[in-house]
């Protein structure tokens, strides 16, 4: 991959005010608000409220960045910029890989900021666990990175705003970010367990609560990653 190109793309993405607000600031603000709302206690699963809310809001922020980078693909397609890029040594795979790497990079600052605020708000765990939580959340961005790319390849430049909005709402709402699966009716709980969001949260809290089905979590996430990769590859081949 071309580091210089990636660097310039990163500067372009980060400069975007919307990115800064929705993927970095808003999740942290929501986190602080929720901590004040719930108080500093313990949830029924034994996890401190601050820890649990920190993970939930980091997950919420995790979706926004990659989805917006992916959506830019639709815009660049519409503008004819992709055609201009095809007149350079950059390959199609290189283009998608750059967008993927870019998405992963923009997902990171939100996680780090919310973790710092979490520590200030009283989340306590040892260094290895901190690393595990941040790392799991970051790797957990992969399905959203791929989803963003798929949306970018499928959606029209006009439609992509609505689609990304809808996708992040559904993934958040039904993925257990706003409503815990424990209090959801059975049918909703079943639906939640199909989405990657729910399982990323499960994986993140696995070291702290008992009864997390790590195998199933990895299986569901792997299925999402594989499925989205296949769709992206097919869509991309159909377009070039």
């Amino acid at each position: 991959m071309n580091a210089r190109f990636l660097g310039l793309e990163l500067r372009r993405a980060v400069r975007n005010g919307r990115y800064l607000i929705f993927t970095v600031i808003v999740p942290s603000v929501m986190f602080v608000l929720f901590v004040n709302l719930y108080g500093k206690g313990t949830f029924p699963n034994g996890l401190p409220t601050t820890t649990s809310l920190m993970m939930n809001m980091a997950l919420f922020g995790l979706m926004a960045g990659p989805l917006s980078i992916g959506a830019r693909i639709a815009v660049e397609r519409g503008l004819g910029w992709q055609k201009q890029l095809r007149l350079t040594p950059l390959t199609g795979t290189g283009y998608l890989a750059t967008k993927g790497a870019l998405s992963m990079l923009v997902a990171l600052p939100g996680i780090l900021l919310i973790s710092i605020i979490g520590a200030v708000e009283g989340v306590r765990m040892d260094a290895l666990h901190w690393l595990g939580v941040v790392g799991t959340l970051w790797v957990g961005a992969i399905p959203f990175v791929l989803l963003g790319i798929v949306i970018g390849l499928v959606a029209s430049p006009d439609g992509m705003q609505a689609i990304t909005g809808l996708a992040s709402m559904l993934l958040g709402l039904l993925g257990g970010i706003w409503i815990p699966a424990e209090v959801a009716p059975d049918w909703l709980a079943t639906l939640m367990k199909v989405l990657p969001t729910y399982w990323i949260k499960e994986l993140t809290q696995a070291p702290f609560v008992s009864g997390v089905d790590v195998k199933q979590a990895l299986l569901v996430i792997a299925l999402w990653v594989a499925g989205l990769s296949v769709i992206a590859a097919r869509r991309y081949r159909a377009q070039s």
Partner: peptide, 21 residues
């Protein structure tokens, strides 16, 4: 037609293409 980014300056757009060559 097209081929210009809506969120970049002229120098940035040319810089992006230059970076790839």
């Amino acid at each position: 037609s097209g081929a210009l980014l809506d969120d970049a300056t002229v120098a940035e757009a040319v810089g992006l293409i230059a970076a790839l060559h």
